[in-house]
Protein backbone atom coordinates (compact mmCIF):
# COMPACT_ATOMS: atom_id res chain seq x y z
CA UNK A 1 0.00 0.00 0.00
CA UNK A 2 2.82 2.37 0.93
CA UNK A 3 6.05 1.78 -0.85
CA UNK A 4 9.17 3.89 -0.45
CA UNK A 5 11.92 3.47 -3.00
CA UNK A 6 15.47 4.82 -2.68
CA UNK A 7 14.31 7.85 -0.70
CA UNK A 8 16.98 10.49 -0.22
CA UNK A 9 16.60 13.72 1.74
CA UNK A 10 19.39 16.23 1.92
CA UNK A 11 18.77 19.43 3.89
CA UNK A 12 19.96 22.85 2.78
CA UNK A 13 22.59 22.64 5.48
CA UNK A 14 24.09 19.65 3.66
CA UNK A 15 22.98 17.09 6.26
CA UNK A 16 22.03 13.84 4.63
CA UNK A 17 19.00 12.79 6.68
CA UNK A 18 17.87 9.89 4.51
CA UNK A 19 20.28 7.96 2.39
CA UNK A 20 18.38 5.65 0.07
CA UNK A 21 15.62 4.16 2.20
CA UNK A 22 13.53 1.27 0.81
CA UNK A 23 10.45 0.35 2.77
CA UNK A 24 7.13 -1.31 2.11
CA UNK A 25 4.16 -1.20 4.46
CA UNK A 26 1.16 -3.45 3.82
CA UNK A 27 -2.44 -2.64 4.58
CA UNK A 28 -3.20 -2.97 8.27
CA UNK A 29 0.41 -3.41 9.31
CA UNK A 30 1.61 -1.52 12.37
CA UNK A 31 5.29 -0.81 12.14
CA UNK A 32 7.64 0.81 14.64
CA UNK A 33 10.53 2.88 13.40
CA UNK A 34 13.37 2.99 15.90
CA UNK A 35 16.80 4.50 15.80
CA UNK A 36 19.01 7.07 17.53
CA UNK A 37 18.23 10.78 17.42
CA UNK A 38 19.13 12.21 14.05
CA UNK A 39 18.76 8.87 12.29
CA UNK A 40 16.08 10.35 10.04
CA UNK A 41 12.95 8.89 11.62
CA UNK A 42 11.02 12.14 11.69
CA UNK A 43 12.32 13.15 8.29
CA UNK A 44 11.06 9.89 6.81
CA UNK A 45 7.54 10.44 8.13
CA UNK A 46 7.54 14.08 7.10
CA UNK A 47 8.64 13.18 3.59
CA UNK A 48 5.78 10.72 3.25
CA UNK A 49 3.35 13.51 4.12
CA UNK A 50 5.43 15.98 2.13
CA UNK A 51 5.84 18.39 4.99
CA UNK A 52 9.41 18.00 3.73
CA UNK A 53 10.13 17.56 0.08
CA UNK A 54 12.25 14.53 -0.71
CA UNK A 55 15.47 15.22 -2.61
CA UNK A 56 15.11 12.09 -4.72
CA UNK A 57 13.38 8.73 -4.69
CA UNK A 58 9.76 7.66 -4.89
CA UNK A 59 6.94 7.29 -2.39
CA UNK A 60 3.98 5.31 -3.69
CA UNK A 61 0.70 5.46 -1.81
CA UNK A 62 -2.21 3.53 -3.31
CA UNK A 63 -0.50 3.49 -6.67
CA UNK A 64 0.41 7.18 -6.85
CA UNK A 65 3.78 8.81 -6.41
CA UNK A 66 3.59 11.46 -3.69
CA UNK A 67 6.95 12.99 -4.52
CA UNK A 68 5.72 14.10 -7.93
CA UNK A 69 2.24 15.32 -6.98
CA UNK A 70 0.90 18.81 -7.64
CA UNK A 71 -0.76 20.65 -4.78
CA UNK A 72 -4.40 19.73 -5.48
CA UNK A 73 -3.60 16.08 -5.76
CA UNK A 74 -1.26 16.25 -2.79
CA UNK A 75 -4.07 17.58 -0.63
CA UNK A 76 -6.23 14.64 -1.60
CA UNK A 77 -3.39 12.24 -0.86
CA UNK A 78 -2.82 13.87 2.54
CA UNK A 79 -6.42 13.08 3.49
CA UNK A 80 -5.43 9.41 3.40
CA UNK A 81 -2.58 9.95 5.84
CA UNK A 82 -3.42 10.71 9.44
CA UNK A 83 -0.58 12.34 11.31
CA UNK A 84 0.00 12.28 15.06
CA UNK A 85 2.69 14.54 16.51
CA UNK A 86 5.07 14.41 19.42
CA UNK A 87 3.95 17.66 21.01
CA UNK A 88 0.35 16.95 20.00
CA UNK A 89 0.29 20.01 17.67
CA UNK A 90 -3.28 20.86 18.57
CA UNK A 91 -4.48 24.35 17.80
CA UNK A 92 -4.30 25.52 21.39
CA UNK A 93 -6.97 28.19 21.30
CA UNK A 94 -9.62 26.08 19.59
CA UNK A 95 -11.94 23.68 21.39
CA UNK A 96 -11.51 19.94 21.46
CA UNK A 97 -14.37 19.60 18.98
CA UNK A 98 -12.90 22.14 16.57
CA UNK A 99 -9.55 20.40 16.76
CA UNK A 100 -11.08 17.05 15.93
CA UNK A 101 -13.17 18.49 13.11
CA UNK A 102 -10.08 20.14 11.64
CA UNK A 103 -9.21 16.62 10.51
CA UNK A 104 -12.06 16.95 8.00
CA UNK A 105 -10.73 20.16 6.42
CA UNK A 106 -9.55 18.30 3.34
CA UNK A 107 -13.13 17.23 2.62
CA UNK A 108 -14.98 20.46 3.41
CA UNK A 109 -15.00 23.72 1.47
CA UNK A 110 -13.44 26.89 2.86
CA UNK A 111 -16.59 28.78 3.83
CA UNK A 112 -18.25 25.80 5.44
CA UNK A 113 -15.18 25.19 7.53
CA UNK A 114 -14.71 28.89 8.27
CA UNK A 115 -18.30 29.20 9.52
CA UNK A 116 -17.91 25.91 11.41
CA UNK A 117 -20.76 24.37 9.42
CA UNK A 118 -19.42 20.84 9.10
CA UNK A 119 -21.74 18.11 7.76
CA UNK A 120 -23.73 16.35 10.46
CA UNK A 121 -22.04 13.05 9.59
CA UNK A 122 -18.65 14.60 10.45
CA UNK A 123 -19.96 15.91 13.74
CA UNK A 124 -21.41 12.53 14.61
CA UNK A 125 -18.11 10.89 13.70
CA UNK A 126 -16.27 13.38 15.92
CA UNK A 127 -18.52 12.60 18.89
CA UNK A 128 -18.05 8.89 18.23
CA UNK A 129 -14.26 9.19 18.16
CA UNK A 130 -14.12 11.38 21.24
CA UNK A 131 -16.14 8.78 23.09
CA UNK A 132 -13.79 6.11 21.81
CA UNK A 133 -10.72 7.94 23.15
CA UNK A 134 -12.52 8.76 26.39
CA UNK A 135 -12.95 12.49 26.00
CA UNK A 136 -16.68 12.73 25.38
CA UNK A 137 -17.09 14.99 28.43
CA UNK A 138 -14.47 17.48 27.22
CA UNK A 139 -15.95 18.36 23.85
CA UNK A 140 -16.18 22.10 24.46
CA UNK A 141 -13.00 22.57 26.48
CA UNK A 142 -10.19 24.49 24.91
CA UNK A 143 -7.21 22.36 23.90
CA UNK A 144 -4.85 24.27 26.21
CA UNK A 145 -6.91 23.21 29.23
CA UNK A 146 -6.12 19.52 28.72
CA UNK A 147 -3.35 17.36 30.12
CA UNK A 148 -0.69 15.79 27.88
CA UNK A 149 -2.40 12.42 27.61
CA UNK A 150 -5.75 14.02 26.87
CA UNK A 151 -4.21 16.21 24.20
CA UNK A 152 -2.65 13.26 22.48
CA UNK A 153 -6.07 11.57 22.48
CA UNK A 154 -7.48 14.60 20.71
CA UNK A 155 -4.59 14.33 18.26
CA UNK A 156 -5.48 10.69 17.63
CA UNK A 157 -9.14 11.55 17.09
CA UNK A 158 -8.14 14.30 14.66
CA UNK A 159 -6.03 11.86 12.66
CA UNK A 160 -8.68 9.16 12.60
CA UNK A 161 -11.57 11.38 11.54
CA UNK A 162 -9.74 11.82 8.24
CA UNK A 163 -10.61 8.17 7.57
CA UNK A 164 -7.01 7.55 6.55
CA UNK A 165 -5.43 4.38 5.16
CA UNK A 166 -2.25 4.93 7.11
CA UNK A 167 -1.23 6.67 10.32
CA UNK A 168 2.08 8.50 10.49
CA UNK A 169 2.94 8.78 14.14
CA UNK A 170 5.92 10.87 15.25
CA UNK A 171 7.11 10.07 18.77
CA UNK A 172 3.61 9.85 20.24
CA UNK A 173 4.79 9.19 23.76
CA UNK A 174 7.95 11.26 24.07
CA UNK A 175 6.25 13.94 26.18
CA UNK A 176 4.18 11.58 28.31
CA UNK A 177 4.72 9.66 31.54
CA UNK A 178 5.31 5.87 31.28
CA UNK A 179 1.77 4.84 32.14
CA UNK A 180 0.11 7.32 29.80
CA UNK A 181 2.62 6.32 27.13
CA UNK A 182 1.41 2.76 27.25
CA UNK A 183 -2.21 3.76 27.22
CA UNK A 184 -1.63 5.91 24.18
CA UNK A 185 0.34 3.23 22.36
CA UNK A 186 -2.31 0.65 23.16
CA UNK A 187 -5.04 2.99 21.95
CA UNK A 188 -3.26 3.67 18.67
CA UNK A 189 -2.60 -0.01 18.03
CA UNK A 190 -6.13 -1.07 18.95
CA UNK A 191 -7.66 1.52 16.67
CA UNK A 192 -5.36 0.44 13.85
CA UNK A 193 -6.38 -3.17 14.26
CA UNK A 194 -10.05 -2.28 14.45
CA UNK A 195 -9.96 -0.18 11.30
CA UNK A 196 -7.30 -2.16 9.46
CA UNK A 197 -5.03 0.87 9.33
CA UNK A 198 -1.39 0.68 8.55
CA UNK A 199 0.87 2.76 10.78
CA UNK A 200 4.42 3.93 10.96
CA UNK A 201 5.23 4.79 14.55
CA UNK A 202 8.47 6.61 15.33
CA UNK A 203 9.46 5.70 18.81
CA UNK A 204 12.47 6.05 21.10
CA UNK A 205 11.33 3.54 23.66
CA UNK A 206 12.39 0.17 22.29
CA UNK A 207 10.66 -1.81 25.04
CA UNK A 208 7.40 -0.01 24.39
CA UNK A 209 7.68 -0.69 20.67
CA UNK A 210 8.27 -4.39 21.28
CA UNK A 211 5.15 -4.62 23.38
CA UNK A 212 2.74 -3.40 20.76
CA UNK A 213 3.90 -3.80 17.18
CA UNK A 214 4.28 -6.64 14.68
CA UNK A 215 7.25 -5.24 12.85
CA UNK A 216 10.23 -3.12 13.79
CA UNK A 217 12.46 -1.20 11.43
CA UNK A 218 15.73 0.16 12.72
CA UNK A 219 17.18 3.25 11.11
CA UNK A 220 20.73 4.52 11.42
CA UNK A 221 22.42 7.32 9.50
CA UNK A 222 19.40 7.54 7.23
CA UNK A 223 19.46 3.90 6.14
CA UNK A 224 17.54 0.79 7.17
CA UNK A 225 19.69 -1.39 9.44
CA UNK A 226 17.12 -3.85 10.67
CA UNK A 227 13.71 -4.99 9.50
CA UNK A 228 11.94 -7.80 11.26
CA UNK A 229 9.66 -8.92 14.09
CA UNK A 230 10.15 -7.40 17.57
CA UNK A 231 11.63 -10.65 18.88
CA UNK A 232 14.50 -10.16 16.46
CA UNK A 233 15.83 -7.21 18.44
CA UNK A 234 18.77 -8.95 20.07
CA UNK A 235 21.56 -7.04 21.80
CA UNK A 236 23.61 -7.43 18.64
CA UNK A 237 20.92 -5.85 16.53
CA UNK A 238 20.45 -2.97 18.96
CA UNK A 239 24.20 -2.39 18.92
CA UNK A 240 24.02 -2.27 15.17
CA UNK A 241 21.28 0.37 15.31
CA UNK A 242 22.29 2.46 18.28
CA UNK A 243 25.94 1.67 18.90
CA UNK A 244 27.71 -0.15 21.74
CA UNK A 245 25.80 -0.34 25.04
CA UNK A 246 24.58 -2.94 27.53
CA UNK A 247 21.20 -3.91 26.12
CA UNK A 248 20.13 -6.75 28.44
CA UNK A 249 18.24 -4.44 30.79
CA UNK A 250 16.28 -2.79 28.01
CA UNK A 251 15.08 -6.03 26.52
CA UNK A 252 14.25 -7.80 29.76
CA UNK A 253 12.30 -4.90 31.12
CA UNK A 254 9.61 -5.73 28.61
CA UNK A 255 8.57 -8.84 30.51
CA UNK A 256 8.86 -7.24 33.95
CA UNK A 257 6.77 -4.24 33.17
CA UNK A 258 4.07 -6.23 31.48
CA UNK A 259 2.45 -7.02 34.83
CA UNK A 260 1.94 -3.35 35.63
CA UNK A 261 -0.13 -2.55 32.59
CA UNK A 262 -3.62 -1.39 33.40
CA UNK A 263 -6.12 0.55 31.38
Amino acid sequence: MLEIKQLVKKYHTGDLALNGVDLKVEKGQVMALIGPSGAGKSTLIRCVNRLEKATSGEIWLNGENIVKMRSGKLRRARRNMGMIFQEYALVERLTVMENVLSGRLGYVGFWRSFLRKFPQSDINAAFGLLEKVGLDTMVNKRADELSGGQRQRVGIARALIQKPDILLVDEPTASLDPKTSRQIMRLICELCRERELAAIINIHDVALAQMFVQRVVGLRFGAVQFDGPPEGLTPDVLTMIYGEEDWEATIESVDDEDDLVTL
Binding site: L51, R75, L105
Partner: peptide, 21 residues
Protein backbone atom coordinates in the same frame (compact mmCIF):
# COMPACT_ATOMS: atom_id res chain seq x y z
CA UNK B 1 3.91 27.94 16.63
CA UNK B 2 4.62 26.32 13.25
CA UNK B 3 3.78 22.81 14.39
CA UNK B 4 0.12 23.77 14.71
CA UNK B 5 0.23 25.05 11.15
CA UNK B 6 1.91 21.84 9.98
CA UNK B 7 -0.70 19.73 11.72
CA UNK B 8 -3.48 21.51 9.84
CA UNK B 9 -1.54 21.29 6.57
CA UNK B 10 -1.10 17.57 7.12
CA UNK B 11 -4.87 17.01 7.14
CA UNK B 12 -5.05 18.04 3.48
CA UNK B 13 -6.44 21.50 4.24
CA UNK B 14 -6.22 24.22 1.58
CA UNK B 15 -4.00 27.28 1.95
CA UNK B 16 -6.91 29.41 3.16
CA UNK B 17 -8.08 26.77 5.57
CA UNK B 18 -4.58 26.51 7.00
CA UNK B 19 -4.72 30.24 7.55
CA UNK B 20 -8.16 30.15 9.18
CA UNK B 21 -7.45 27.16 11.41
Amino acid sequence: DETQVEAITATGASRWQVMAY
